[in-house]
């Protein structure tokens, strides 16, 4: 659909003219933004910030200034309740997060989040679905992608392929992350990181993915090879299962981010936070690792 609109827009823009205008927008309602995770085998952690006006200039430091550092964050699994502690983590922007130390995420369990900021209370609840086991993962070199740089050319570039059987019940949702050992400090999501089983229900499926990217780093056009894995990479693939509301949050967020331009329709990023914006998500996890073969090994076959 987007493509069609894009193509139509090229046709229309052929005759059109464009100018900068000033748009008078009202101040948005002030809202708290929650980015909270509870992953299987891990302690929960939560970032809290505030929204900004649409035309406000944004930088890493302005985002830091929007962080909320005086919240009381509580997570409960129905039996245990713990208050998360604010820490500084230099590996993950925007550095300040609330982390737990008692509760560890378990598949099949429901987790409630309560955030108190002054007199305001935000609540949310999520579920960790059972993880879905991958059959296998495999790096496949795409020899087509050749670039001037000899070193990389001899290594080869390619996608990561993964194979699994979707469970027989409808309503399985997935989120992917990748990490190249020695290069990425944490797991990063690839472009379009979530999917659902509407068409693949109860089938054996094969998918490929680009390499996950640090969202804060812009990749210049002449370094496009960074979108791919290369020969010799040790690739860790994290395959998560999520509930429908977590899926909808990520899906709409990624759609909202890739849209823009003439024919896009407004997409409201969904939320499961009562009284705020953002997501409190539970993640079931399956992890697999592979080492990418060099280009010559592929050609030798």
């Amino acid at each position: 659909m987007k493509k069609i609109f894009y193509i139509f827009s090229t046709l229309i823009l052929f005759v059109s003219c464009e100018k900068d205008i000033t748009v008078d927008l009202p101040q948005p309602e002030e809202k708290y933004v929650v980015e909270g995770y509870i992953e299987q085998y891990q302690h929960p952690y939560v970032f809290i910030s505030k929204n900004s006006a649409y035309f406000e200039e944004i930088s890493l430091s302005s985002i830091m200034e929007k962080m909320v550092l005086d919240a009381e964050v509580t997570v409960s699994d129905g039996f245990t309740t713990e208050v998360l502690e604010l820490i500084y983590d230099s590996l993950q922007f925007p550095y300040y997060k609330y982390v737990g130390s008692t509760i560890i995420g378990e598949a099949g369990k429901k987790y409630d989040l309560t955030i108190k900021i002054g007199s305001e209370v935000l609540t949310a609840s999520t579920f960790i679905p059972n993880p879905v086991q991958l059959d296998s993962i495999k790096y496949i070199c795409e020899t087509d992608y050749e670039i001037g740089n000899d070193t990389i050319d001899s290594l080869g570039l390619g996608f990561l392929w993964f194979y699994f059987t979707d469970p027989d019940t409808l309503g399985n949702y997935y989120k992917m992350y990748t990490k190249v050992l020695g290069e990425d400090s944490i797991f990063y999501p690839p472009f379009a990181s979530v999917s659902e089983d509407k068409i693949i229900n109860n089938q054996f499926v094969e998918f490929s993915t680009y390499r996950g990217q640090d969202p804060l780093i812009e990749i210049p056009d002449d370094e496009y090879y960074k979108w791919f894995f290369k020969g010799g990479d040790t690739i860790i693939f994290k395959f998560q299962t999520i509930d429908v509301r977590t899926y909808q949050f990520w899906y709409t967020l990624e759609m909202d981010n890739s849209s823009g331009g003439p024919f896009s329709t407004p997409i409201t990023v969904r939320t499961n936070i009562d009284g705020g914006l953002g997501i409190w998500g539970g993640y079931g996890v399956f992890i697999d690792t592979t080492i990418a073969k060099l280009k010559n090994d592929f050609l030798a076959k």
């Binding site: 948005p28 933004v33 910030s49 006006a53 649409y54 967020l253 981010n257 407004p266 990023v269 997501i279």
Partner: peptide, 19 residues
């Protein structure tokens, strides 16, 4: 038409907050 009034940062992305 509907226009965004605000935006917010989440996981490396800027989300629009529509009016």
């Amino acid at each position: 038409l509907t226009l965004p009034e605000g935006k917010y940062y989440i996981n490396g992305m800027l989300a629009n907050q529509y009016g």
